[in-house]
Nucleic acid binder design. Structure first.
Lengths: 155, 155
DNA sequence: AGCATATTGTTAAGTTCCTTAGCTATCAAG
DNA sequence: CTTGATAGCTAAGGAACTTAACAATATGCT
């Protein structure tokens, strides 16, 4: 090892490096959008789930974000305060409640993300069916590798 | 809009959904590895840079992580305490110092990540040159889209 | 039905990690 | 050698998380 403890990347494919770049860039995009919506990373994460899945209970939000229900309560407090969500009673269970995203907030987030989503999606059309199949297969197998890595806890 | 404010994803390509899945899975893998190394997310992020780039100064770490130098000082304190890095004087500037990752810690992290990196990289070999070109092109253009999205601050 | 147990959301106290502000030591330039 | 910039650190304050304990409601057992 003659390069002083630096990880060796000379054997990595161009595609692997690009995928890493995508991962870091996505973090930056999310961070920027969170700032635009005046919420912290956690609250933005919650908003993403609410936008994608519709109204959720605080406990469901806690589970999805990997935080405690106490933290979820505080996150919802903050989102209510800035007007991004409202608390509504659950129709059949009076213990529960539903956190409902405000339509205006959903629109603002979507307006910002739709161009990216649209471009990403339109991108596929540039390729032949065979190429698209290869791309999809590559991504699917990458998902499998990540899931396998998650399963292999080193402990 | 008859599905109660839920984002519409019926028009998204399979590949786009897989890419999103990769993004969330990667977060989970990083979180798990951080726990295995007994460090918080920030310190793990710092370790990633140290592993990939070799010794760095605290200010460089601060810049890369998007935190203040004060926070970087405290992060290095924590990493020193658990033995993942050492502080060494800069050879030519006595104000500076170099944060050097311990070889043992680098090995532990790499032992965990190398299988994934290797598999990800080997994955490419499954495809023909034309398919590989398509995959690389797709990823490169996705990077461009993300960079463009970053540029478009909605404010 | 009635009572024990579980679940949902909340609050309170304590911890961790960040920021801002200010400081010291060192370097670079005149 | 003095002035200004830079690197890293400390201290105080704030934001967001955790654990623990609680009230209200639901569920299940006998």
């Amino acid at each position: 090892m003659d390069d002083a403890g630096r990880a060796d990347r000379r054997e990595m494919h161009e595609a692997s490096l690009l995928l890493r770049r995508i991962l870091t860039l996505n973090d930056e995009v999310e961070k920027q959008l969170a700032e635009e919506l005046d919420v912290n990373p956690t609250d933005f994460d919650a908003m993403q789930h609410l936008i994608q899945s519709g109204p959720l209970s605080p406990s469901e939000i806690a589970a999805r974000l990997g935080i405690t229900t106490a933290a979820a309560t505080m996150a919802v407090d903050r989102l209510v305060k800035v007007g991004h969500v409202t608390r509504q009673p659950h129709p059949s269970d009076r213990r529960r409640l539903l956190v409902v995203p405000r339509e205006e907030s959903v629109r603002r987030a979507m307006a910002r993300l739709l161009p990216m989503i649209g471009e990403t999606d339109a991108l596929l059309s540039r390729y032949t069916d065979a190429e698209q199949a290869a791309i999809t297969d590559y991504l699917a197998r990458t998902v499998q590798i990540l899931q396998r890595t998650l399963g292999r806890d080193g402990a």
